[in-house]
Amino acid sequence: MDPQTIWIMIHVVLLVYWLGADISVFYCSLQIIKPANSRETRAAIAKVLGFVNAFPGIVSILMLPVGLMLASGKGLSPITGGWLALVWGLAAIWLLISVSAASQRGTPLGKTYATIDLWIRYVLIAVLTIAALLSLTGGAPFTSNWLALKVLLFAFVLVCGLGIRFTFAKFGPAFGRFMAEGSTPETEAGLRGPVMRVKPWVLALWSGLVVMALLGIAQPLL
């Protein structure tokens, strides 16, 4: 069996646990800000949200090396052989850092991991954008325009992810305050604000993923 068949499958399954899992996160976030729900209920919903939300975080990191595997198999990417192994190594390290940032959240070590993760994302956004723009204008490093556009959209999706992270940063402390003080107009507003502000970023991220999926399926001559 051609290994490409397995990589395509993994590529799509990653989308399943990114885009498909996100809808649960979205609905849970709306239940968390519902004043009719008690503290205990909202804490339980937060548990569901936290569990499901771990999946998009992991699969979004794996998406890039898997996509590059597919591109190299089709002869569309210069990242092959040893370079591809290096990409996998770096992705594995990034995954470890990102997972550690989540598991150590609230500790100084967790904060360090989160900062490193943030800088990895800044560098990656810059590298992907430059590589995509060079490819679109000069035909290298990626030889197909649809692939270059996908790379650019991946950078866009990473930007949306950062937008989500920054707008949602206030939610954690607000939730802690709500759990301590109970439902007051202030604590409810504190919960509601970040959830409402994060929506445009989430919708932009989903749109980016859907367009990327279409580009991958159609592989149009652009």
């Binding site: 799509v12 989308l15 399943v16 646990y17 885009l19």
Partner: peptide, 13 residues
Amino acid sequence: VLTFVYWVGADLG
């Protein structure tokens, strides 16, 4: 593909 994504992905929650 999207029907598959939202079928299996949403099941997680």
